[in-house]
Write a protein that binds this DNA or RNA. Structure first.
Lengths: 345, 345
DNA sequence: ACAGGTCATGTAAGCGCTTACATACTATAC
DNA sequence: GTATAGTATGTAAGCGCTTACATGACCTGT
């Protein structure tokens, strides 16, 4: 066991006293907010070093009404998806000398903790909101207050003009499915949707539909199931299909996490990929190229989404302006799980 | 484009006025810090709801000298490793009604931003410090100040009694290598070390050494290279070996990220796994079972490490006490990349 | 030599809370 | 009925900063 307890640290007045100046001067040299004689500044710097002084963030925040911090709201941290997104966000955040405060909206924190954990903002200068982590009502509330907000993978609810950053889902999905149809002659292509209300999923499904329509393949609702954008749900969904004796020549798993579940289920059932059934995903996670067979998918620039969103938010905070909608392009990544021959990148 | 700009929000005095009480009373009902007549409390709650009041975190922090926030220091966010760790941390943090502030120590932020981005603490009640994200000097500085600290995957520098949470590396590594030796008859086993100063790596290497010694296999320094605990470094390391015509019958990649690089390099060179060369990793990341062949590895309870560390830190903050050293057990996970037959979990 | 600038620095008023202390009121005991 | 002890609420002093404003020193031009 070990013990600890706070001890008092140097404040700005300690530094001022030590350097023989006023606290205003100390503040000025630290923030470089007004010219200070270089000799004076020197004394202040020395005092800072000697006392090992660090400004008190809360005091600063209270006085200046800025926290220099971005908040990130996540539905819950999980899946392979967040790692690259976080990296992108972190990049933008630290390049701008800000900090990152993360909340994941667990189960039911909403109600109870509202007062004690002011997610409402106020400990950040703005919020990055990932799909499904905030109700429309909450969104509206914050928007009305003029609190800087940027949405990730979600467009704002009706008539709220909140900037939003996402990827080109529909076109990517369509290209992917058309590849299956045109190159591999697939006709019975299963689609695993993501969670309800997940916009990415809706767009991907539309792309899937468009591809079918463009090739005169009638839409069969039985070929759509819920894969939840995760491994387990996808696995059970495929198991259900298999149990029902559903005939399929390809499965578009919705995303790559789901695709790993699909592959597992198929292999367990003794199906060969891609000979018996082709499998494709969406996102191009780092792991996807290592699956067996390597996964054909659509590359979503996840890290860039994070970075772009953070940058937009910072711009919104600083200048009051941001681009309403940023859609980052996706790219078809052909590997072998669709039936194509040799590998690439 | 969209625009925004802060508007003023309700403060505690607005609420007090609106409810016809003093700010002290409002504070008391919000924090449940002293008995208040239920009728009065009711009025306050109504006022809070009507004004959509949220306490100002900075003001609170300044007055109470607590931030209700845990800081997490990372060397940089990357690799598949952080996702589960973060999830564990987040779990503990939100279960305790706290928030999580993340810094990743990019390249050279250290010097310059020290004053403006007070990593020194002060915007968190305590810090979770991941290996290599803080110099011993910084650690010492904060320790001297009695700032609550918990180390992840790193033991404290000499005579600083900072609690630390890590996994059982040596025993796991030894079991892994012994499996290679005893079951598969390997004698020339390559080891890919992680980054310098990474304690996990040192212990894993010791486990490797112990296993060799226990089986009278002389240690050959040529069989140790640097895989950096990441895919790319590991790939080049293996390519070097192959180029030199190094004879190997197994490679212990250091961790699973590195193992994916090893597998890639080996496959490119036309080697069969495990027939020509066995490959094993460490960590058991989610992707590892999906590699081809499925990776034999050691399961490190990464999520639990995060959760345990956060819990220790919270305990340290609240009670001043924490367990000095927590070592979480690891478990050998046999799959096929070592040469074993059929799959399991 | 003096008005009018500049520049460096100091003074002090908050920012929105928490909390020790003071006060008023009600209930209990005798 | 008065003293005693609670209980509910108010008052006000900070917490450690930022920043508008005031001050004083030193130039410059005439």
């Amino acid at each position: 066991m070990t013990t600890a307890g706070h001890s008092q640290r140097a404040t700005i007045s300690d530094v001022a006293k030590h350097a023989g100046v006023s606290i205003a001067t100390v503040s000025r040299v630290i923030n470089q907010t007004a010219p200070v004689a270089s000799e004076t500044a020197e004394r202040v710097y020395n005092a800072v070093a000697e006392l090992d002084y660090t400004p008190h963030a809360a005091a600063r925040g209270l006085a200046s009404n800025k926290t220099n911090t971005l908040g990130l709201l996540l539905p819950m941290i999980g899946g392979s998806y967040f790692s690259p997104m976080l990296r992108g966000i972190e990049k933008a955040v630290s390049q701008n000398g800000m900090a990152l405060l993360i909340y994941s909206m667990q189960t039911d924190v909403h109600q109870s903790a509202r007062l004690n954990l002011p997610l409402g903002g106020h400990n950040s200068d703005g919020l990055l909101v990932f799909t499904n982590s905030l109700s429309d009502a909450d969104l509206q509330r914050m928007y009305k207050r003029n609190f800087p907000l940027v949405l990730l993978h979600q467009t704002p609810p009706a008539n709220l003009n909140i900037p939003s950053v996402t990827v080109e889902n529909k076109a990517g999905s369509r290209k992917l499915v058309e590849h299956l149809i045109e190159v591999h002659g697939c006709r019975r292509i299963g689609f695993l949707a993501g969670p309800e209300e997940h916009e990415d999923s809706k767009w991907r499904q539309m792309g899937y539909l468009e591809a079918l329509t463009a090739h005169n393949i009638p839409f069969n609702p039985e070929l759509v199931a819920n894969g939840g954008f995760n491994e387990n749900d996808a696995r059970s969904a495929v198991e259900q299909w298999l149990l029902k004796g559903m005939e399929l020549d390809a499965i578009f798993a919705g995303d790559d996490d789901a695709a790993t579940g699909v592959i597992t289920a198929l292999k367990r059932a003794g199906k060969r990929i891609p000979q018996d059934i082709a499998v494709v995903g969406f996102d191009d996670l780092p792991l996807s190229r290592h699956l067996s067979p390597p996964l054909t998918t659509v590359r979503a620039p996840i890290e860039q989404v994070g970075q772009e969103a953070a940058n937009q938010l910072i711009r919104l905070i600083r200048t009051g302006q941001a681009t309403s909608l940023v859609i980052l392009p996706t790219e078809l990544i052909i590997r072998q799980s669709c039936g194509c021959g040799s590998s690439s990148s």
